[in-house]
């Protein structure tokens, strides 16, 4: 009698390497915020720069849940050219989370400096805005005895798509290890208004600007390429797995050109007690 074989293959599993369990991530990040702020630093208040975009919306929602909405200050910092949609969505985040609201118009501060730098192009002007917002955020934090909370996601951090010592400066960041597409997934779970999730991501430093135009690639593509690069796959492997060579090379170039932005200042080592070289203490020691 012939043996009849059943062919067995692995069960269908999600091939989405960016998959997260948003409920678990929420639980994890709420505890992160409580532990790092309240337990480790004895600080009970948080300050979030609310831009109207999805990253700061997610951080505002998380902070409200971790600390209670009345212990969170949302600071909206428009510049004269900021989009009205950003302002509208910023207000929406404040309303939905119930956090305290403060508007600091940065136009005068930015223009005050730029009056002395009339040759500044769009990039320099954008950097000045980001750094003025950093000043306002830290000052508002000092005022209420809180700490600024970072809103940079992993995609923009890997791309170096931020202003160094500007929007990357807050000392605590709950979403810095989440790619942009994962931030969107978390936002849907947290109940961030759909209009904020579904609009094109933008730094809103220049009129009409979008992240994906600036970067030259969609986040959906970029995040998958980034994820594979970070997991140790080389460019040839990633191209062979079906990605467009131009996209893979673009991502790789951006990552390689911006390692410096993910570090503090390079300091000349003179002694065998050089800080962070020989003298090593963890941030929470």
């Amino acid at each position: 009698m012939k043996t009849s074989y059943q062919i067995v293959r692995p069960a269908e599993t999600s091939d989405d390497e960016l998959r997260i369990d948003p409920a678990l991530v929420e639980r994890w990040l709420v505890r992160f915020l409580r532990d790092e702020l309240v337990v480790a630093r004895n600080i009970k208040k948080a300050v979030v720069g609310v831009s109207g975009g999805v990253d700061s919306a997610v951080v505002a929602f998380l902070c409200a849940r971790a600390l209670g909405p009345k212990n969170v200050l949302g600071v909206r910092m428009p510049y004269a050219t900021s989009s009205p949609t950003s302002a509208k969505h910023g207000r929406l985040v404040i309303e939905e989370t119930g956090i305290d609201d403060r508007v600091v118009d940065i136009t005068a501060a930015v223009d005050g400096y730029l009056a002395q730098a009339p040759d500044a192009g769009a990039q320099r002007r954008g950097n000045v805005m980001a750094r003025v917002r950093m000043i306002a955020l830290f000052d508002q934090s000092a005022k209420i005895g809180g700490l600024p909370i970072g809103t940079g996601n992993k995609s923009e951090r890997m791309f170096g798509y931020f202003t160094w010592h500007g929007d990357d400066s807050p000392p605590i960041n709950p979403i810095g290890d989440l790619f942009k597409t994962q931030v969107w997934a978390l936002a849907r779970h947290l109940g961030v208004p759909r209009a904020i999730i579904e609009k094109p991501a933008t730094a809103d430093l220049i009129r009409g600007q979008t992240d994906e135009d600036d970067l030259g690639i969609s986040y959906a593509q970029a995040d998958r390429i980034l994820s594979r690069l970070l997991s140790g796959h080389d460019v040839d492997d990633i191209i062979a797995s079906g990605f467009v060579a131009k996209d893979v090379l673009l991502v790789k170039r951006r990552v390689d050109a911006t390692h410096w932005k993910r570090h503090l200042a390079t300091t000349a080592m003179i002694s065998n007690t050089a800080i962070n070289e020989f003298y090593l203490r963890p941030v929470d020691y």
């Binding site: 505890r31 992160f32 532990d35 790092e36 337990v39 963890p282």
Partner: peptide
Amino acid sequence: LGFEGGKG
């Protein structure tokens, strides 16, 4: 248990 410098 606990977070230490972001590691939980």
